[in-house]
Design a protein around this nucleic acid. Structure first.
Lengths: 116, 116
DNA sequence: CAAGATACCTGGCTATACATAGTAGTGGAT
DNA sequence: ATCCACTACTATGTATAGCCAGGTATCTTG
């Protein structure tokens, strides 16, 4: 039986990995394996390969990112991902929403949820 | 077919509603309908009844909160929820994890995910 | 007595991340 | 020649939270 806390952290991560990938790509082009290596070491986000690659596929299908193949001198060709114009628009919206949520959460932390 | 952004916000909320309820109850005892009215007006979190009540049940089954029935002079009896000792412990852990994630997200927002 | 606000709850649905395991090809070192 | 690190991906099965729409009961007011 899974621990309550462990399960909660899984739920909390939902949507965040996607957001992290898009935010990262909004800074610079990156190839898949590099993203995998980055995301697996981030505190709180121990995202494995099996999560990242399917996500990249989904984002490409959704038209938010695009890919190009680049030869490498140290191994197989790398697939570099970058944001499309549509992707850039979405990230902006996501940033706004995320900041709103952060603000809300911070207020609840101080005095609990109130209405009126 | 649902919009990409709308769907993402749903995913992002996962775990957060739970967190908001527990955080709110760590400040004071509250009854269900009151929580519903509070959560539905919070910016970013437009959580409807159908989400809140099942959550309260789950949290009670998990032993994090407990309830007591109180007569009301303005309508049906209200069910007041409060944190158990176990719940208080969990909220502390959740706060720590949440802050870690916030920190990570904020760094990614500035320079993208990096490794090494 | 009907209307409406208050108050609580359930059933069926969807999308997502996770876990685990596997495939496949390139290039450098032993 | 062989092994290892790099790089990309696929497949399949699981669990879960949140959403929508509805249901039920209580109490006050017109």
């Amino acid at each position: 039986m899974p621990d309550f806390f462990d399960n909660w952290t899984v739920q909390l991560r939902k949507g965040l990995v996607e957001f992290c990938i898009l935010r990262t790509l909004s800074h610079s082009e990156r190839y898949g394996y590099d993203l995998v290596k980055s995301l697996v070491t981030l505190p709180g986000l121990n995202t494995p390969e099996g999560t990242v690659y399917p996500l990249l596929s989904r984002l490409r299908t959704a038209g938010l990112i695009e890919a190009r193949l680049v030869e490498s001198s140290e191994g197989p060709a790398r697939k570099y991902y970058s944001l499309t114009a549509e992707g850039r628009k979405q990230v902006e919206q996501m940033n706004i929403y995320f900041n709103t949520l952060s603000q809300t959460l911070s207020e609840i932390g101080e005095k609990g949820a109130q209405h009126d």
